[in-house]
Lab assay of single mutants.
Amino acid sequence: RKWEEIAERLREEFNINPEEAREAVEKAGGNEEEARRIVKKRL
């Protein structure tokens, strides 16, 4: 699934746990840019 690939990239890029990465992607509706913004806000 594409969402899992996005979550994996976010996890590696921001050094967050898989659960946090998945939550961000879900919140963003699968949009990678939006997920990235969500993760950055949390850091």
Rank of each mutant, 00 (worst) to 15 (best):
R1N: 12
R1M: 12
R1P: 11
R1Q: 13
K2H: 12
K2T: 12
K2F: 12
K2V: 14
W3R: 07
W3T: 04
W3S: 04
W3L: 07
W3D: 05
W3G: 04
W3Y: 09
W3A: 06
E4F: 10
E5C: 10
E5Y: 07
E5N: 05
E5L: 09
E5A: 07
E5M: 07
I6Y: 03
I6G: 01
I6M: 11
I6S: 03
I6T: 04
I6C: 04
I6A: 04
I6Q: 03
I6H: 02
I6N: 01
I6W: 02
A7R: 04
A7Y: 07
A7W: 08
A7S: 06
A7F: 05
A7E: 08
A7H: 03
A7D: 02
E8T: 10
E8I: 13
E8M: 15
E8C: 13
E8L: 15
E8Q: 15
E8Y: 09
E8F: 11
R9F: 04
R9G: 05
L10N: 00
L10Q: 00
L10E: 00
L10H: 00
L10D: 00
L10A: 00
L10T: 01
R11I: 14
R11S: 09
E12M: 15
E12S: 14
E12L: 15
E12H: 14
E12I: 15
E12F: 15
E12D: 11
E12N: 14
E12Y: 15
E13L: 07
E13Y: 07
E13I: 07
E13R: 04
E13V: 05
F14K: 01
F14G: 01
F14A: 02
F14N: 02
N15W: 07
N15S: 12
N15V: 04
N15Y: 06
N15I: 04
N15R: 09
N15G: 12
I16F: 02
I16A: 03
I16R: 01
I16K: 01
I16D: 00
N17K: 13
N17A: 14
N17Y: 08
N17M: 10
N17H: 10
N17Q: 11
N17E: 12
N17F: 08
P18V: 13
P18A: 13
P18S: 12
P18F: 13
P18R: 13
P18D: 11
P18Q: 13
P18I: 14
P18G: 11
E19F: 12
E19K: 09
E19Y: 10
E19D: 14
E19L: 10
E19G: 08
E20P: 03
E20W: 15
A21C: 04
A21M: 02
A21H: 01
A21Y: 02
R22W: 15
R22L: 14
R22M: 14
R22N: 08
R22E: 07
E23Y: 11
E23Q: 12
E23H: 10
E23G: 07
E23T: 10
E23K: 10
E23W: 15
A24E: 02
A24R: 01
A24F: 05
A24P: 00
A24C: 05
A24L: 06
A24T: 05
A24G: 02
A24W: 03
A24Q: 02
V25C: 04
V25A: 04
V25T: 05
V25P: 00
E26F: 13
E26S: 11
E26W: 11
E26R: 13
E26K: 11
E26M: 13
E26V: 13
E26Y: 14
K27T: 11
K27N: 10
K27V: 10
K27W: 14
K27D: 11
K27S: 11
A28Y: 01
A28R: 01
A28E: 01
A28M: 03
A28V: 03
G29H: 13
G29P: 00
G29Y: 11
G29M: 13
G29W: 09
G29E: 13
G30V: 02
G30H: 03
G30N: 03
G30M: 03
G30T: 01
G30Q: 02
N31A: 05
N31T: 03
N31Q: 07
N31W: 06
N31L: 07
N31M: 07
E32S: 05
E32F: 12
E32H: 11
E32R: 04
E33R: 09
E33F: 13
E33N: 10
E33I: 09
E33D: 12
E33W: 14
E33T: 09
E34Y: 07
E34W: 07
E34L: 12
E34H: 08
E34S: 06
E34T: 08
E34F: 07
A35E: 00
A35C: 03
A35H: 00
A35Q: 00
A35S: 04
A35Y: 01
A35M: 01
R36L: 04
R36H: 04
R36G: 03
R36M: 06
R36D: 00
R36A: 04
R37F: 04
R37L: 10
R37G: 06
R37V: 08
R37M: 10
R37D: 09
R37P: 00
R37E: 13
R37S: 09
R37C: 09
I38Q: 07
I38D: 04
I38A: 08
I38W: 07
I38M: 09
I38G: 03
I38H: 06
V39G: 01
V39T: 06
V39S: 02
V39Q: 02
V39R: 02
V39P: 00
K40A: 14
K40W: 14
K40E: 15
K40Y: 12
K40T: 11
K41E: 15
K41S: 11
K41F: 06
K41C: 13
K41A: 12
K41G: 08
K41M: 13
R42F: 15
R42K: 14
R42T: 15
R42V: 13
R42Q: 15
R42L: 15
R42D: 08
R42S: 15
L43I: 10
L43N: 05
L43R: 11
L43G: 05
L43K: 08
L43P: 06
L43E: 05
L43W: 08
